[in-house]
Nucleic acid binder design. Structure first.
Lengths: 221, 221
DNA sequence: CCATTTTTAGTACATTTGTACTAAAATTAC
DNA sequence: GTAATTTTAGTACAAATGTACTAAAAATGG
């Protein structure tokens, strides 16, 4: 592997595990086994690496949207897509966990992210319209409610990670499904009878235990 | 004012404005006009101050819950309470913005926060039950849905601040009402006819413009 | 008024960090 | 094969940080 790629990979690992403030040019260089001088040749500073990793994440997430096929749209599809996306986000979790720090340091990221959210808003709107067309989702009953719901959903999809870090002690499949379940459950009140049937169908086949909130709290009550 | 209080106040100011990594014992001492030695006499390090501020926030938030009166419970009451709480959170915003950093450094805060969420979960459950009893909210139609909704709401109420910092350029009343509106709109699909009427009533009297998403995005489209 | 405690200033030290620079080594181009 | 370019190691430096320590000043108690 090229030195440049080794740096990126190691930086990602350290950022995810140690968090922002503990990662420096030297800590990365040491772990990779190169001199700090060499590292600064490839990347001027840590922020530059972070920017590159941010772009990687955006790329990875948008790749998964490309596969969208309207006729496949269902609550189950939405669920599976969500789990997939959450895995990608977990892989770059430091970006979402330290997002405020990142945007404070890097105006570029902030501006780009705003645009990204605008795009996601349109995408979700498209999903919703498609689900209405498919007879799975109800027509909008209260003006503006779906637009609000969409923003809520977007906020949730950026926030679950911070939440997970506090409330989960083990970070695995269970966690991804917990939050994907929450995400999709937001749709339920807007489903038609047909949609609800579809939802109940695949839900039942998963044989989940009844929902009882966070695992961390469960143990203590 | 006592030196100790001056320190706390200045630390809060700097933490809110500069963020975590830019605040040090010296930066606070300089601003207050005391020696670093004096500061370490009162607080061993910045983390100790942060812990104290965290406790202040918890205190302030729980104070606003004390005033709860079941018969007053309505969507409007919920909205106003939310705005009030959001103002308090804004006052200690660094805690929510850098929450992951805080909990990583301070296990105490993490454990305490988990308990806090457990409490909030029960409180919201109580609100919901009360609203059902008042005929404002529907009976639960899908098993576990309300518990999920409550967790979503809690996550949202911790996440709106990070979101706001990215999407708003001016931090004022408009921002608080934007997110409180989002928060309460999550209730709408669960309202009864009576509840919906109440909701529409005070909403109409506020004369809000129709909802169009983030202001930052609006300008560019 | 004096002894004790609390509060304050000032300083010193070891670490860490970003940045910059030089020169050697490796690679590439022709 | 050699000249040019890219990549690498190594080092030096200024700035900032947490921590620890000493001694003076201020406040308190009796």
């Amino acid at each position: 592997m090229k030195t440049r790629d080794k740096i990126i990979r190691e930086a990602k690992r350290q950022l995810n595990e140690q968090g922002f403030d503990r990662v420096s040019i030297r800590s990365i260089a040491d772990a990779v086994g190169i001199s700090p001088g060499n590292l600064t040749y490839h990347f001027k500073n840590v922020d530059t690496i972070v920017y590159e990793l941010y772009m990687e994440l955006v790329e990875a997430l948008s790749a998964s949207i490309q596969e969208f096929q309207p006729h496949k749209l269902s609550t189950q599809w939405f669920y599976e897509q969500t789990v997939k996306n959450y895995r990608v986000m977990w892989d770059y979790r430091f970006l979402l966990l330290d997002f405020v720090t990142v945007t404070r340091k890097n105006r570029q990221v902030k501006d780009h992210f705003r645009q990204l959210v605008a795009m996601r808003q349109l995408q979700f709107r498209m999903f919703a319209d498609q689900m209405i067309a498919n007879g799975i989702m109800q027509e909008e009953r209260v003006a503006g409610l779906y637009d609000r719901f969409i923003i809520q959903t977007i906020i949730f999809s950026d926030a679950w990670l911070s939440d997970a870090l506090v409330h989960f002690d083990e970070f695995g499949d269970r966690m991804f499904h917990f939050y994907a379940d929450l995400m999709v459950s937001g749709l339920v009140p807007f489903l038609t009878e047909k949609g609800l049937e579809e939802y109940r169908g695949w839900k039942a086949s998963k044989n989940d235990p009844p929902f009882r909130g966070y695992p961390s709290i469960l143990g203590k009550m």
